[in-house]
Simulated scan of single mutants.
Amino acid sequence: MPIPSLPIVQALARRVRGHQNRAARQMGVGEGVGVVVSVRAVPGGWAYHRAQRGRFGYLVPCGDVEAAAEQVDLLLKHRMFPPTW
């Protein structure tokens, strides 16, 4: 029986729509997207993965936090602004 990976980071991004009132913008109400990152064993060590995709969600090897953050940033940007991709 495979051992499920546990999520270690949940990254969220919000985009506030222009037609909302000022109070709603201050509270952070708007459209949001997110990604959950987990650590899974890979040949030769450990790696960050998108939890929703399991072993198919490979991002980068553990130890390279900056590269992982860049990958998560690109995923969130793609979800928030799909027409620009």
Rank of each mutant, 00 (worst) to 15 (best):
A11P: 03
V36N: 09
E31P: 05
H49W: 03
V60A: 09
A23D: 15
V33P: 06
E66S: 09
Y58N: 02
M27C: 15
G30I: 01
D73W: 05
R79V: 00
G63S: 04
G34Q: 04
V72I: 06
V16Q: 08
V60G: 01
R79M: 14
Y58R: 00
D64N: 09
R53A: 14
G57F: 05
R17A: 08
V65F: 13
V60C: 06
V35A: 02
Q26W: 11
V60S: 03
K77F: 07
A69N: 08
W46C: 11
A68G: 07
R14E: 15
G30Y: 02
M27Y: 09
F56N: 13
V42T: 04
H49Q: 04
G28Y: 05
P83E: 08
Y58F: 15
V16A: 08
S38R: 01
A69D: 07
H78D: 12
R53C: 13
D64F: 04
Q71E: 15
V72Y: 02
G32E: 15
L59D: 00
P7L: 01
P2L: 06
G57M: 02
G45S: 04
H78R: 10
G32S: 15
P2A: 11
P43M: 06
M27T: 09
R40P: 00
V16Y: 07
G57A: 10
Q52D: 15
A51K: 03
V36S: 06
G30D: 02
G54L: 02
P7H: 04
R55V: 12
I3G: 13
V65P: 06
V35P: 00
Y48R: 01
P61H: 08
R22A: 12
Q20R: 13
V72R: 01
M1F: 12
P43Y: 07
V29P: 00
I8P: 08
V36P: 00
Y48T: 00
M1D: 09
G32V: 04
P4Q: 04
V60F: 06
L59T: 01
V60L: 05
F56M: 11
Q71M: 06
V65Q: 12
M27P: 06
P83R: 03
G44T: 03
N21H: 13
G30L: 01
N21E: 15
E31C: 09
I8C: 09
R15M: 07
A69C: 14
G34T: 02
R53G: 10
W85N: 13
V36F: 09
R25A: 15
P82H: 04
A23K: 08
M27N: 10
G30Q: 02
V65Y: 14
Q10D: 14
L75V: 06
L76A: 01
R14P: 04
V9Q: 08
G18I: 05
V72C: 00
A68L: 05
H78G: 12
Q20G: 11
Q71C: 11
L74A: 10
V35K: 02
G45K: 00
W46I: 03
I3Q: 14
G32M: 03
A47G: 05
L76M: 06
V65A: 12
R22S: 11
G44P: 02
I8V: 10
